[in-house]
């Protein structure tokens, strides 16, 4: 339900607020509910907060989805290779995964952004690059337990190639827990982007919730609503994504229902 609301916000952003959300709209720092033109007020430089929230929904969902897809793809491929072949491939891939896990992910993210710049694309890719470890471990564990099953042996007997075995036979069986975990990855991706934007290290040219919170920090003492409103938006979105994940989990693991 909540997720539908956020998606609706993202979709209707262009219709409800056709103008550039970062364009000047009125006098700065109008409180919410004071002016009918700006239901959520305006920020330090007189930009419409409501418009920024709606357009921000787009950015957050976009970055969340894209980064999640990237992270899950990397994780699934590496995890599948490590779990399927075992031995040396497993050792090398798991060492690399461990290296990424030992490194604080936000520090790595800071570095990637510092090196490759902060446009929407680089930020998204950077977030994807720091979030694939857990899906990789999950996929590997599934593959380890599945690769000795009869259906895999049967596939091997009828002469299926490794690629077919991995992607057509084992992967569909290994996927459910990974799909559930994807919602966690997406939630974390949205939080990471907002934290980056808050630190002024994300793309400054898009209406991002984190940017707005960082901006509101300057007037926190008096006009705290500038920071408060986008924070609530982030909270609702992340909550929505995690609830969807929980729903998926319940649907895919009927045994755990009622907990």
């Amino acid at each position: 339900m909540l997720l539908i609301l956020v998606i609706a916000m993202a979709l209707s952003a262009g219709i409800l607020f056709p103008k550039d959300p970062l364009g000047l709209a009125g006098s700065p720092l109008i409180w919410p509910f004071r002016d009918a033109r700006f239901p959520l007020g305006t920020d330090n430089s007189g930009r419409d907060i409501a418009a920024q929230i709606f357009h921000g929904a787009r950015i957050s969902l976009l970055i969340g989805l894209a980064a999640m897809t990237l992270a899950i793809s990397i994780g699934v491929v590496l995890g599948a290779l490590a779990g399927f072949y075992g031995g040396l491939a497993d050792d090398v891939l798991m060492r690399i995964t461990e290296a990424f896990q030992t490194l604080p992910n936000f520090l790595l993210l800071l570095m990637l952004v510092a090196v490759f710049g902060s446009t929407l694309t680089t930020v998204t890719i950077a977030i994807g690059l720091v979030s694939w470890q857990a899906p990789a471990r999950l996929t590997r564990a599934e593959f380890l337990s599945l690769r000795t099953r009869e259906f895999v042996q049967a596939g091997r007997t009828i002469g299926l190639g490794d690629a077919t075995l991995i992607f057509r036979e084992i992967l569909p069986n290994a996927l459910p827990p990974v799909i559930v975990y994807a919602s966690v990855v997406m939630a974390v991706a949205i939080l990471l982007e907002s934290a980056l934007a808050f630190l002024n290290l994300s793309d400054p040219n898009v209406a991002s919730w984190g940017n707005l919170i960082g901006l509101g920090r300057g007037v926190l003492r008096s006009e705290w609503y500038v920071s408060a409103i986008p924070g609530v938006a982030i909270l609702i979105t992340v909550l929505a994504v995690s609830l969807v994940g929980q729903g998926l989990n319940d649907a895919l693991n009927p045994r755990l229902r009622g907990r």
Binding site: A187, L191, S194, A195, F198, G210, I213, G216, R217, L220, R221, W224, S227, A228, P230, G231, I234, L235, I236, T237, V238, L239, S242, L243
Partner: peptide
């Protein structure tokens, strides 16, 4: 627990400053 999980920490910190410090 669900709400805490979804709260961006820096935002919680800022709101904490607003309420408890200001």
């Amino acid at each position: 627990g669900l709400v805490f999980y979804a709260t961006p920490s820096f935002w919680f910190g800022l709101m904490g400053i607003v309420v408890f410090a200001i």
